[in-house]
């Protein structure tokens, strides 16, 4: 077993990204899609922190990851509020039920 290198983190990030993308495409439940979004955002975080550590750009990578964490939290708060509002009207968060607007 060799030591853990940058490549390991990048592969982890890429895997997280693919899982997230798959979740966003496959899930029909709005909360499920949001979880996919969080996976992709965390893939970005893993990349940022790994690059920041191994490529020696000061703390830029870690600082950027902090911002992305805050963005993810803000986005989740807003998204869930909107899901609740949708739920009040349709008693479901299945995105396929949102078929009023189309064309």
């Amino acid at each position: 077993m060799g030591s853990i290198t940058l490549m390991h983190y990048l592969v982890l990030g890429a895997l997280l990204f693919c899982c997230g993308l798959l979740t966003m495409v496959v899930k029909r439940n709005a909360v499920g899609i949001l979880i996919g979004v969080e996976l992709v955002l965390n893939a970005a975080n893993v990349n940022l922190v790994a690059f920041g550590r191994y490529r020696g750009a000061g703390i830029d990578g870690q600082a950027a990851a902090l911002f992305v964490i805050v963005l993810a939290a803000a986005e989740a708060a807003v998204a869930i509020a909107i899901f609740m509002n949708f739920y009040r009207h349709l008693t479901t968060v299945d995105v396929d039920r949102g078929d009023l607007l189309r064309g």
Binding site: G20, M24, A30, I33, L34, G36, V37, E38, V40, L41, A44, V68, L71, E75, V78, A79, I82, F83, N85, F86, R88, H89, L90, V95, G98, L100, L101
Partner: peptide, 19 residues
Amino acid sequence: AEAALKYVLFGATTAAVMA
């Protein structure tokens, strides 16, 4: 409500890819 749901899901997805 439906417009906002579609908007937020679409926006969150593209923002994640952007990140």
